[in-house]
């Protein structure tokens, strides 16, 4: 039994890493990773929401009627996000200011609803919580990694400390919007080059991981194809 829990956690961090392998939740991934510390903050906030939402949804899995499960999940997730938001505002105001609107937007993070639908609604509470922990940590690690690259190149610092030699001229574009796309593009290209399979090449055909709502709805493109075929 112990092994199953461990397996869930490792699965989330490595085998099904939400950012690099599943390519989910792109908006916060690109928006808040201007520094490593922001990446960690966003990752851990999402992780907390993910663990609790998986746990609660798993506990409620036999209570929520199937037809209204998506609105039900959204209410659970939105309540948890509000709690996290208030806690951050009260105790870590600096992080709250840095992340801004992206904290309430955790609600629409595809990973959370995706895990609720794909895993938590079918698993026992403890396993679901472990799954949330694994996915959350995987997300945190990915965000921190992107944050480290962007902060190092764009500002010459790491977690706020100067690490680059004094003569280093920071490439400011990396902490701005274009840098986010470039760093993620390079990281995924490296993974592709190493032949680590991710869903990006497959998904890009249909939905590039817009799984927010994808619960059962296929994405626009795919549906259109079906309609043409049908």
């Amino acid at each position: 039994m112990n092994g199953a829990y461990k397996e869930r956690i490792i699965n989330g961090i490595i085998k099904e890493n939400p950012t690099f392998i599943l390519v989910l939740g792109m908006c916060p991934t690109l928006a808040v990773t201007t520094s490593a510390i922001n990446g960690i903050g966003m990752g851990l906030s999402t992780c907390a929401v993910l663990i609790l939402s998986n746990l609660i949804i798993s506990l409620l899995r036999n209570t929520i009627p199937d037809q209204v499960r998506i609105p039900g999940y959204i209410v659970v997730i939105a309540s948890l996000v509000t709690v996290v938001e208030l806690i951050l505002r009260a105790y870590i105001p600096a992080l709250y200011d840095a992340l801004g609107l992206y904290i309430p937007l955790i609600v629409v993070n595809c990973i959370i609803l995706g895990r609720a639908e794909a895993y938590a609604s079918k698993a026992t509470p403890l396993l679901a919580a472990c799954d949330g922990l694994g996915m959350g940590l995987g997300f945190t690690i990915a965000l921190t990694l992107i944050g480290i690259f962007r902060e190092l190149i764009g500002a010459g610092t790491l977690f706020g400390l100067h690490v680059m030699p004094a003569g280093y001229q920071p490439v400011a574009i990396f902490v701005r919007a274009p840098g986010a796309f470039i760093v993620l593009g390079i990281l995924i290209a490296v993974l592709n080059g190493l032949h680590i399979k991710n869903n990006s090449s497959k998904k890009v055909e249909g939905c590039a991981g817009d799984c927010c709502s994808c619960g059962k709805e296929a994405c626009g493109d795919r549906k259109e194809e079906q309609r043409i075929e049908g």
Binding site: V23, R176, A177, P178, G179, A180, F181, I182, L184, G185, I186, I188, A189, V190, N192, G193, S200, S201, K203, V204, A208
Partner: peptide, 17 residues
């Protein structure tokens, strides 16, 4: 090869940004 799919789309987005 490695740029096929998502990476090239992201680079395009970067240029647009």
């Amino acid at each position: 090869g490695p740029l096929k799919g998502m990476p090239i789309v992201l680079f395009t987005a970067a240029l647009m940004a």
